[in-house]
Design a protein around this nucleic acid. Structure first.
Length: 306
DNA sequence: GATACGTGGCT
DNA sequence: TAGCCAAGTAT
C-alpha cells in the first residue's frame, strides 16, 4: 500500500522543505558545489564517494576530520589505489566497520583498472564497486553527478514515514513501498531532485530525529501525517538491540587497534594481551585474516595487509 | 530475510 | 547505567 499524496501536497512539501534546506543546511565540505569546489587537486566525485562510505552508520561529527585527512592523503582514486590496503585500514582510525576502508581501497583499484581512473556516472556501475550498495550508489549519483535518483537512507525513511504515512518509525528494513514513495516524492527537475534528496535527509538528521524529534522546529509540521494523527507512539516491531560486550566484534576491534597502532608487524604474544579467552581470540584473528584485514607473516607475526 | 560487522555519544 | 542510535553492505 504505497502512499502517494496528491500532487498539490507533494509540491507544497517540496517548497517547504527545499526552502528550509536552503536556509538551514549544514556547511559540510562534501556538499560544496562543483562551481565553488575549493580544492582543484581533489577529485570531487571521489570526495563525495569517500564521504558517503564514511557516513555509513557513522555520525557526521566523527567523519568530517577523517574525510579531510583522506582527501589530503588520497585526493583521487588513483592515489588510494597506489597505496597498500593496510594504509587505508590504518588511516580509517576508529571510524568503525574497518572493512569499509578495505572496500574503499578495492573500489579505488577497480576505478583505476576498469574505469580509467574516472568514477562512473552510472548507478549500476557505481553499485558494482566494492562497498557500494543501493544507497551509496544513489547518493553518489545524485550528489556527485546530479542524477535524479532516489536516495533512501534511514533519515529519509523516517522523515517520509512520519510526513506521509503517519507512522512514528519506518520498518526495520527498507521495503519496496518506501522506495516507491521516495521515487514518487522526487521532483521531476534533475537539480531540484538532488537538492530534495539532501534536504529530506538533512531534515531527518537534525529535526525529524529518531528519539526526540524537534517538531516545534519542523518546517513541515503543518503537513505532517504523524502529527495530524496525534503523534502516536511506535507500535510495530522494534529493531533488535545490538550487543557489544564480549562479542567477536569487540575482540576484533581490540586486535585491529593493536595492529593499527603498531609501526610494524607484531608477534602473536602482543595480540594475546587484548583478550583473555584464547579460543575466541584465535577465532577472531582468523576471521580478520579471512576478511583480508590482517596479513599473517612467518614466525607467528601479523600486520595490516601490505 | 536474518545476521554479522565498530565505535562513541547521548539519555 | 544500559540501551539506543548513527548518510549501510555483504552474505
Amino acid at each position: 500500500m504505497t502512499h502517494r499524496p496528491p500532487i498539490g501536497e507533494v509540491e507544497a512539501l517540496h517548497d517547504t522543505i527545499l526552502d528550509w534546506y536552503d536556509a538551514n543546511a549544514r556547511d559540510l565540505p562534501w556538499r560544496i558545489p562543483a562551481a565553488d569546489w575549493p580544492w582543484p587537486q581533489v577529485d570531487r566525485p571521489w570526495a563525495v564517494l569517500v564521504s558517503e562510505v564514511m557516513l555509513q552508520q557513522t555520525p557526521v561529527a566523527r567523519v568530517e576530520p577523517m574525510w579531510h585527512r583522506w582527501m589530503q592523503l588520497w585526493p583521487t582514486p588513483a592515489h588510494l589505489a597506489a597505496a597498500a590496503p593496510g594504509d587505508a585500514v590504518r588511516e580509517w582510525g576508529r571510524l568503525g566497520y574497518p572493512r569499509r576502508a578495505l572496500r574503499l581501497h578495492a573500489a579505488a583499484v577497480a576505478i583505476r583498472d576498469e574505469h580509467g581512473g574516472v568514477i562512473p556516472a552510472d548507478l549500476q556501475q557505481l553499485q558494482a564497486l566494492p562497498g557500494i550498495g543501493g544507497y551509496t550508489a544513489a547518493a553518489v549519483g545524485a550528489f556527485a553527478f546530479g542524477i535524479r535518483s532516489a536516495v533512501v537512507d534511514v533519515n529519509v525513511r523516517r522523515a517520509e514515514a512520519r510526513l506521509v504515512t503517519g507512522a512514528a518509525y519506518p520498518a526495520p528494513s527498507l521495503s519496496a513501498a518506501e522506495t516507491a514513495l521516495a521515487r514518487a516524492l522526487l521532483p521531476l527537475d534533475e537539480p531540484a531532485a538532488a537538492r530534495w534528496n539532501a534536504a529530506v535527509m538533512e531534515l531527518g538528521a537534525v529535526v525529524c530525529k529518531a528519539a526526540r524529534p524537534l517538531c516545534a522546529r519542523c518546517p513541515a509540521h503543518a503537513q505532517c501525517a504523524w502529527i495530524r494523527a496525534g503523534s502516536p507512539a511506535h507500535d510495530g516491531p522494534r529493531r533488535a538491540a545490538q550487543r557489544w560486550h564480549g562479542t567477536d566484534r569487540q575482540v576484533r576491534g581490540k586486535l585491529l587497534q593493536v595492529l593499527r597502532d603498531a609501526p610494524a608487524a607484531v608477534p602473536r604474544s602482543a595480540l594475546d594481551l587484548v583478550w583473555p579467552d584464547a579460543g575466541q581470540r584465535d577465532r577472531c584473528l582468523a576471521s580478520l585474516v579471512e576478511d583480508g584485514l590482517v596479513e599473517p607473516l612467518p614466525r607467528e607475526r601479523f600486520r595490516l595487509p601490505g
